[in-house]
Simulated scan of single mutants.
Amino acid sequence: MLIRKLFRFENAHVVRGCSTRRCSHSIHGHSYRVELFLEAHAFDHGQMIYDFGLLQGEVRELIDSFDHALALWSGDDESYLTAVRRHSERWVLLPVSPSAEQFSRVIFRLVDAALSTTPLSNGEADVRLHSVIVHETETGYAHCFREDAENPRMGRIDIGEIQFSPAIVAAWRNVSLFEPSDRDRESRASMERPR
């Protein structure tokens, strides 16, 4: 069974290299809607897959980190990145371009990590993140599944390479939530080993 939870945030970005000049050469913003789909094949003691209230803590805080922030790509021009970080209090530096597709992958990886550290105490069983939809506009969205989030052909997303501005981090209740997991460290090490 799947359940869905909807979140919203406002964010601005530039998507370098895209076909539309407005998007690739100008900072512009969107009213994003993020749909999280959780999957399980058993109920907890409340006969639910997962209590929606559990998503209002660290997962909500994580998604809110993107609200009223600029999404930056670490591969962009360094003078642009420096200027934005100097003149904006809220920014997130990503190892991939902040397209809707990559946003869905980034949010999948971050929410998946947050869910893996959320204590389960009400009989929840085999709950996992199934997919993430990021609506960039009313008519366009990207739908990410686990195989997409972990697909190196779409760009490697190492959670440890995602940087949140000091103003964003200062608002978090649990700063260690976004540290790289053992799986991320192992993945990075395997990619760095000579073949």
Rank of each mutant, 00 (worst) to 15 (best):
R8F: 01
H143S: 09
G29K: 12
D44A: 04
Y32E: 10
A114N: 00
L115S: 10
E89Q: 12
G53M: 01
N174Q: 07
R195M: 05
S65L: 06
S97N: 13
L38R: 06
C144I: 03
A167I: 03
R4A: 15
H41C: 08
A171L: 08
H87G: 14
H30K: 09
T139I: 07
C23E: 07
H87I: 13
S88Q: 12
D51Y: 08
K5Q: 14
D184C: 15
A42G: 09
V106Q: 04
P98E: 11
A12K: 12
S190A: 15
S74E: 09
V59F: 03
R188D: 15
S31F: 02
A83T: 11
T137Q: 10
T20Q: 08
V92E: 00
E147D: 14
S97Q: 09
F145L: 11
A170R: 05
R60G: 11
D148F: 13
P98Q: 14
C18T: 02
L2F: 11
S74D: 07
A167W: 00
L94A: 02
R188H: 11
I162T: 01
D148Y: 11
A40Y: 08
R33C: 09
I49D: 01
H13E: 11
V169F: 01
S181K: 06
G155E: 14
I3Y: 03
G17R: 05
S79A: 14
I168C: 05
F145E: 06
R128E: 13
R153W: 00
Y80M: 10
I107A: 05
H135S: 03
D76C: 10
G17M: 02
Y50Q: 04
F103S: 13
R4I: 14
V92H: 10
H30G: 01
W73H: 15
R8G: 13
I159G: 11
V111T: 13
A42K: 01
S88P: 07
D148V: 00
M1K: 04
F66Q: 04
R146A: 01
S181D: 02
G17S: 05
D44M: 05
G140Y: 02
G57P: 02
